[in-house]
Nucleic acid binder design. Structure first.
Length: 220
DNA sequence: GCGACAG
DNA sequence: ATCTTGTCGC
């Protein structure tokens, strides 16, 4: 039942889409994510420079964000950026980084979508299947879906809907600033993902773990 | 056919 | 994502 989980990353766009359609059926996006049980949170990010992708995974304590582990990996960037296929560009280098992780984070925060994706399998969901751990997608801009008016106040959030299905939420982490597009990756749910992100962003627009990973990955 | 389009 | 200095505002 998990035979095709460890798949090849070297696929054509058409093959990648076909694979996403198969894997999407295994994504669990309705499992309650209880913040009371969260002790360690990981932030994941990838930066691209001169044809090389650098991945960083930073594990921090929750809710005070003290760094307990940082792992990185560098590889040639294997795939062009294609909306909807980000996993195939950042997946390989992330797998390498995850393989070096010693800690066991209770949840991983990704720079990108979870189920808020055309086929409901953004990078947070895809890597979640590999990690077999709760994951949450944190997008800075919208990939798909629509939403109603969002209050300007920090903490405000409204449903993100696509083709009649609620796929995530648009969340304001900072009053007056652009919102974040939150969605469960795998083994999490929308309410839990929103609560976790808000708890991880007490001072800045982006969740603290993601900011830490940004730094470790080399982008400033 | 015409837009939209994570990082 | 990345290319890039100074600058407006709290």
């Amino acid at each position: 039942m998990e035979l095709h989980r460890r798949h090849d990353w070297d696929l054509t766009p058409a093959e990648a889409v076909a694979l996403q359609r198969r894997l999407a059926a295994e994504v669990v996006a309705d499992r309650p994510l209880d913040l009371a049980g969260v002790r360690l949170v990981a932030g994941v990010d990838v930066s691209v420079k001169d044809g090389r992708s650098r991945a960083a995974v930073v594990v921090a304590t929750f809710p005070d964000f003290r760094v307990v582990e940082t792992v990185t990996a560098i590889r040639p960037t294997p795939f062009p950026y294609v909306p909807g296929l980000l996993s195939f560009r950042e997946g390989p280098v992330l797998e390498e980084a995850f393989g070096r992780l010693a800690a066991s984070p209770d949840v991983f925060l990704f720079d990108g979508m979870g189920t808020a994706h055309p086929r409901r399998i953004g990078i947070a969901s895809h890597m979640g299947l590999w990690l077999e751990r709760p994951t949450v997608g944190v997008g800075k801009t919208r990939l798909c879906g629509r939403h109603g008016p969002l209050p300007e106040e920090k903490g405000a959030h409204v449903p993100l809907v696509d083709r009649g299905e609620t796929i995530g939420a648009v969340v304001r982490t900072r009053t007056g600033k652009n919102p974040l597009f939150i969605s469960p990756g795998h083994l999490a749910d929308i309410p839990g993902a929103v609560a976790l992100v808000l708890a991880c962003a007490p001072k800045y627009r982006l969740p603290e773990p993601i900011r830490l990973a940004h730094k470790a990955a080399g982008d400033f």
